[in-house]
Amino acid sequence: MQAAIAYIPTVVRGLREQLRRLRDEVGMRKVVVTNLHPMGCTPMFTRQLNYSGCDQAANAGSDQHNAALRSVLAGLDPANRTFLLLDLHTPFTALVDDDHRPSSSDASSRNDETKGRFPVRLRPCCESFSAGGYCGQQDDAGKKQYTLCDDPEQHFYWDDVHPTQAAWAAVADTFTPAIHDFLST
């Protein structure tokens, strides 16, 4: 994890250069840029914790990347006319991370909608029999090396890193208005 975190400045510098190029050389007038969701809440990391919680060290890496990305966008586009930072981190966190989900006393939260939306938040619907395996894997005889849940709508994650269709729909509901506003200006 430390190696990935050490690479963040290089990644963000590359993003800054490519965003500048899109604006200045290609002439893009509107660009939507996504930040990182809480990576430590993906089953790739939660499996090591028996799906009982998010890996906070991995989430710290996502937070560090997102802070650097916000800084880059502020420098490139202080008025937010060309670039929209599409926040994936906040809705993902609200839906999957018990340590950071809004409390019931937070009247401004979407707590009622998010708290029970996905009863299975940290375990994937499609789970490999082995830690090094993958969803859809078969042995040499064609026997499945994974299990599938009965109801993907109850799961936030489909496999080790990808949200289910229901999860993406829930997340998209939170940022669709921001995209419409950005594109209409």
Rank of each mutant, 00 (worst) to 15 (best):
Q2G: 09
Q2E: 12
A3T: 05
Y7M: 00
Y7L: 02
I8Y: 08
P9I: 00
T10R: 01
T10Y: 00
T10W: 00
V11H: 06
V11Q: 11
L15W: 03
R16K: 13
R16Y: 04
E17S: 10
L19I: 06
R20H: 06
R20C: 02
R21Q: 09
D24T: 06
V26E: 10
G27E: 01
G27C: 00
M28L: 09
R29N: 08
K30G: 03
V32M: 04
V33C: 07
N35T: 07
H37S: 15
P38Y: 05
P38M: 01
C41N: 03
P43I: 02
M44H: 11
M44N: 07
F45M: 02
F45N: 02
R47T: 10
Q48A: 12
L49M: 09
Y51W: 11
G53N: 07
D55S: 14
Q56N: 07
A57S: 13
A58R: 03
N59V: 07
N59I: 09
Q64G: 05
H65G: 02
H65K: 02
N66I: 05
L69P: 08
S71Q: 15
S71E: 15
L73K: 04
L73T: 07
L73P: 07
G75H: 09
G75F: 09
P78D: 07
R81P: 06
T82G: 12
T82K: 12
L84H: 11
L85T: 12
L86S: 14
D87L: 14
D87C: 15
H89L: 09
F92R: 05
F92I: 05
F92W: 13
A94R: 09
L95Y: 15
D99S: 15
R101N: 14
R101W: 15
S104V: 09
S109L: 06
S109N: 04
R110S: 13
D112K: 14
D112S: 15
E113W: 14
E113L: 08
E113C: 07
K115Q: 13
K115F: 12
K115R: 15
G116V: 00
F118H: 12
P119C: 09
V120W: 04
P124K: 04
C125K: 05
C126P: 04
E127A: 07
E127K: 11
S128P: 04
S130I: 02
A131Q: 10
G132E: 08
C135Q: 11
Q137I: 03
D140R: 12
D140E: 15
D140N: 13
G142L: 10
G142M: 10
G142K: 10
K143L: 08
K144G: 01
K144Q: 11
Q145N: 06
Q145M: 11
Y146I: 07
T147D: 03
L148R: 11
D150V: 01
D150N: 08
D151N: 14
P152I: 10
Q154E: 01
Q154F: 00
F156Q: 11
Y157K: 02
D159L: 11
D159H: 05
D160S: 08
D160N: 06
D160G: 04
H162M: 05
P163S: 11
T164M: 00
A167T: 08
W168C: 05
A170S: 07
A170F: 03
V171A: 00
D173T: 10
D173Y: 14
D173M: 08
T174L: 00
T176G: 06
P177T: 08
A178G: 01
I179D: 01
L183E: 03
L183S: 01
